[in-house]
């Protein structure tokens, strides 16, 4: 079964490719674009992208598996990534992680049964002045405590 991709996606891919002197250089931006539409990069998507960029699918697989932000399995609607690096740890990231596990009823690396939340730890997000911090999809939240976590989770519907 060949997946359907939107016309808009195909158009944006063509625009991105035109920005580079070599097609292959567009691989990461194309992976970002496709993942935004499909949620993850499955072997089907690898083949689709390989076809567009004149690459072998294995070459796309190599890149997909190297970069942590490119997902091979779809995650929940909201991907909660808590920084567990030093500045956040100093200011209580451990407590934040435990509280999220308890609240969501899942462990790190898991997704809630309703597919709403996935929970991960992540290395430094570059927002250490707001430690402890986390990211929900691409939105940053800082200066976390339990109360703020409650409010953030309640706002995600």
């Amino acid at each position: 079964m060949s997946p359907e991709y939107s016309e808009l996606l195909r158009q944006r891919i063509a625009e991105v490719i035109a920005r580079y002197p070599k097609k292959e250089a567009a691989l990461l931006p194309v992976l970002h674009l496709v993942q935004r539409e499909t949620g993850s990069i499955s072997p089907e998507e690898e083949k689709f992208i390989a076809g567009i960029l004149d690459l072998k699918p294995i070459k796309v697989r190599e890149v997909v598996t190297f970069y942590t932000m490119i997902l091979r399995q779809p995650l929940g609607k909201y991907h909660v990534q808590v920084c567990s690096n030093l500045s956040c740890t100093l200011l209580g990231a451990g407590t934040i992680i435990d509280y999220l596990k308890e609240k969501l009823g899942i462990e790190i690396g898991q997704t809630t049964p309703d597919k709403k939340f996935s929970l991960s730890t992540v290395e430094c997000l570059g927002a250490c002045e707001q430690a402890p911090c986390l990211m929900v999809n691409f939105d940053y939240y800082g200066n976390l405590d339990k109360e703020r976590i409650d409010r953030i989770l309640a706002s995600l519907t």
């Binding site: 691989l27 960029l53 890149v63 970069y67």
Partner: peptide
Amino acid sequence: AGAYICGEETALLESLEGKS
């Protein structure tokens, strides 16, 4: 796409070229 090593200048070049 989430790889610290790509801040190293030659890894950055490889990454920009569409590689690991």
